[in-house]
Design a protein around this nucleic acid. Sequence first.
RNA 1: GACUCGUUGGUGAAGUGGCUUAACACGCCGCCCUCUCAAGGCGGUAUUCACGGGUUCGAAACCCGUACGGGUUACCA
Length: 549
Amino acid sequence: MTNKDLANIIFPHITKTIADYEKMYPKRNLEEGACVTRFAPSPTGFVHIGNFLSCLIDYVIAKNTNGIFYVRNEDTDQKREVENAIQIIHDVMSFYDMKPNEYQKGDTVVGKYGPYIQSERKEIYQAFIKHLVEIGRAYPCFATKEELEELRSAQEKIKARTGYYGRYARYRNLSIEEAVKKIEAGEKYVIRFKSMGDFEKKFKFMDEVRGLLYLPENDEDFVIMKSEDGLPTYHFAHLVDDALMHTTHVVRGEEWLSSVPKHVELFATFDYPLPKYIHIPLILKQDGDIKRKISKRKDPEASMQYYEEAGYPKEAVIESLMTIANSNYEQWHTEYPEKNYLDFIFDPKKMSATGGALYDIEKLNNISKNVIAKMTKEELKEASYEWACKYNSDLKEIIERDPKYYMSILNIERESTKPRKDITTYADILNHIWYMYDDLFLKEVPYEFMKITDKAEIKHIASIYIEKYYHPSDNQDEWFGKIKTLCDELGYASNMKEYKQNPEKFKGNVADISTVLRVALTKRAQTPDLYEIMQVLGEKKIKERFARL
RNA sequence: GACUCGUUGGUGAAGUGGCUUAACACGCCGCCCUCUCAAGGCGGUAUUCACGGGUUCGAAACCCGUACGGGUUACCA
């Protein structure tokens, strides 16, 4: 019996050859320098921020070079599969306006290199594995879990490197006849790759981020096909898919760096060109004294869903991630504020290789404030409304009942050269504007008076102001001039400098008086410009609120 | 344990042998401006680049060693 017979016994149903597939998926016809990248998530129902970062980089690289960006669903581990996962992934991408050139979702397949779901590519992988068996570079392995565990502990005992390699690969040299006998007896088996590498030898590997690396050759006969469902492992799917789909750049987490030797041997075995690898740093989190990998279970901010729900503008999240991707992004962005992030030329060499970046929420907050401050009132209204429809019915209701009024509130100290920067997220908006609405203003919120707390004095100040000095048609200077006059009349300093020189000469100062008026109208001691607030509130509400005092 | 990547401030980092008495951004602190706040302006925030050796006229940068941190070591990706 020959290897070919063995291959036919294992894969009797596989009739296509690798040459057939090579013909089916010919080289892409792209312009010089165009990169083909892919986002290859596992359908776990959860989009990790680190995965999203790699997706973003993939996308930018493809856009930079007029290339192709596609999405491939890596569902070879069917145990982890979660319903709707593909939809969730696409939702996240579309929220951030990322449009893949090729993908598969439901019954829709876009692109000629599909299927883009690995579980639907089983036959393809098996044709490649069959080929490997035929040429004697893959073999069935009948080792049970227990056998493998024994092997491992035996290796640990003698302090040998653990793993299934060289002389420890017990089924590597099983005769074809014996293998066939076991298969026919119904024994379970996996297919392992027969490595020709020498662990003692090193080879050069070019990592696009770290530069030239010397890595030991792979000598492990690692599993390429699982026994349960005949699906390939990641390593093998990576070879077949990225070769057939003609991926030029693989962006993935640093944790993959140590399996590079496996991938290199695999590509070399088929004589396929190795894609370029961009191993990106992990995203870490400060936990007490230590930095640790941001974790799906413990950290809500590990999920992209978190940022959307929290009401961060998508531009802010993108910008903060781009800053991690390329440290020079921020400078570029301040230099060309009008340009889209996709115009930025990503350079893997400019990526930090420090083995993990802390994702800084403070920094995100700052970026977010600036993004929101730069929006026009219409833009902010639209974006916040869209958010509110999904995540906050109170805000939704408030916007709907009078969108114009809402916008006029948002417009306070906006659309100027020095816009306000107090709103961090859409979720934050209501905290800043509730007092502009009567129903919310009238709720049991205490007045937060500051220095002047004497009720009689407060009443006194308020009533004189409203009776004598309030004129709805005043411009800002007239308005403030009158508050100063009020100060003089009541023995408060209308000039802060004078007050600071001789505070004992006055009952207080113009700030104290303003605060009384501010709190009377908003219940809060800290608000944006009072004049503008009063303009938006209007005469009727102002008079009502003073009367309520 | 083995293999591997890394180590510049509170954080992200610039830095590729002299232009570094170490950019920039966030944070923090102080002052100024100001009717409050958010801002904004100005200044401070690493006597020094994990440590120890070496190379060099000269090192954060190059080499060696040590320590520490991360990753991998699955029929998970």
